[in-house]
Computed example of a mutant assay.
Amino acid sequence: MRKLNILIWHIHGAYLTALAQAEHNWYLPRKADQSEGYIGRGVGSSMPDYVREVPADQIKNLDLDLIIFQTPRNYQEDQYEILSAEQRQLPRIYLQHNSPEPHPTDSRHWAADDPNTLLVHVTHYNRLMWDNGTTPTAVIEHSVAIDPSLRYNGSRPEGIFVVNEMKRRGRMAGYDLYESLRQDLPLTTVGMGSAEIGGIGEIHYTLLHRRVAEYRFLYSLMRYSSLPLAIIEALTIGMPVVALATTELPTVIENGVHGFISCNPDELREHMQFLLDNPVEARRMGNNARKLAQERFSIERFVQDWNRVFAEVVGRPVPA
């Protein structure tokens, strides 16, 4: 399809890096104060050169085809601040990354009942649970853009959890479970705020997965979230996953095949110990995990799905 000129705010760096694999002209607004969504490409970005940052006060001068919102602020405030009246009439998508908050079933989406916006969810669970009103919706499942040569090693007999600000996020991110399980098991965590709770600290995205690949398994203690990108990243490099069986995960991880899922922390403890004691089995499950990622979460499928949605939204022929 013809390359489109697309405006998007920099909200979720890992997701944006994957989305930018769709070869269009991407424009990221930037402000000197680097407030939410206005960091441009960001520091050390691995995004392609066709992803360009533009001073926010110059966005009105761009010849755009499509606007992508990702936060309430983008939708309720930013568009009125940086877009011209004509640009606000352009085709538009609201990309919703998260599961509904504050209530899992009764949270009404900010773009509900907006017939001029397509609301794209990243999991079927999310679309099911959000109150979308009459706004048209679609689901595009995750993918990740990481070094395709990276492979699981698993030589370090420890589990690792990739999560930002786990302590601040509390029970939702499973901080209480982490504190309990690591009394018996060699577990660590990596991400913003992890050093203060005994973890590794923050590692730049371009270096993160090589480090993660050394650990025996990736675990996730998220009680309530979208399908975490860290899990997709682990599957992609061929790493077994141990996680809570909540939200979309029961449709992804099969027990004893790609790793283990359970809502029982005692069972999770047993599964983690099994992988620590059985590196051969961990590698077998990791190989299955990689096959799953190639079949369900490939970057090629992800780009194809997004290009199809772009074509539909801007009223152009849908690519095969």
Rank of each mutant, 00 (worst) to 15 (best):
K31V: 00
A85R: 14
L7M: 10
M172V: 15
V314E: 04
D57L: 04
H12P: 02
P157S: 13
L64F: 02
N25T: 12
E233L: 06
V43H: 13
I146S: 07
H121P: 00
L7T: 07
F297V: 12
G193P: 08
R127I: 06
K60V: 14
G201Y: 05
A32R: 13
N287L: 14
R156H: 08
Q70T: 12
N287A: 14
H109P: 00
T117N: 02
I11W: 03
N74A: 13
E270W: 13
Y38W: 04
F310N: 00
L235T: 10
I261K: 08
R171N: 11
H24L: 12
P29N: 07
H97F: 14
E270K: 15
V43S: 13
T246Y: 01
I197E: 01
L181W: 03
T117F: 00
P186M: 08
R269I: 02
Y205R: 11
I68F: 13
R41L: 11
D266K: 15
L62D: 10
H142L: 15
N126P: 00
E202K: 11
H24G: 09
V257P: 01
D49P: 05
Y15K: 03
I203D: 06
A20E: 05
S226R: 07
E141S: 13
D184I: 01
L95M: 14
F69H: 15
L235P: 09
R108K: 13
T246M: 03
L4D: 06
I232R: 02
N264D: 15
N307V: 03
V122H: 07
A234H: 03
Y205C: 01
L64C: 03
H10D: 01
L177D: 11
R210F: 00
P91C: 04
L275Y: 15
Y75H: 10
M1I: 14
D277C: 09
S220P: 05
L66T: 11
T188P: 01
V257A: 11
S220Y: 02
G259P: 13
K3E: 15
S180D: 15
W26L: 10
V51H: 08
G159K: 06
L187K: 13
I93R: 12
Q34L: 12
D184N: 14
T246A: 05
A145P: 00
S298R: 01
R301W: 05
G191K: 05
Y224K: 04
V252K: 05
E36I: 08
G199W: 02
M166N: 06
T17M: 08
Y94D: 09
V257H: 12
R223H: 15
H24V: 10
A145Y: 00
A56F: 07
Q70E: 15
A56R: 00
R210L: 00
Y94F: 15
V313Q: 07
D176Q: 14
G238E: 11
T236Y: 09
M239F: 08
A138Q: 12
I261S: 04
T123P: 00
E214Y: 02
I203R: 03
F310V: 03
S143V: 05
R168S: 14
E179G: 04
Y15N: 06
S45M: 08
H24P: 09
L235S: 09
E281M: 13
L235A: 10
L119N: 04
H24C: 11
G256M: 10
D277Y: 07
M47E: 10
H271I: 02
R210P: 00
S226D: 14
V212L: 04
H10E: 06
P136K: 09
P319D: 07
E101P: 01
E214K: 08
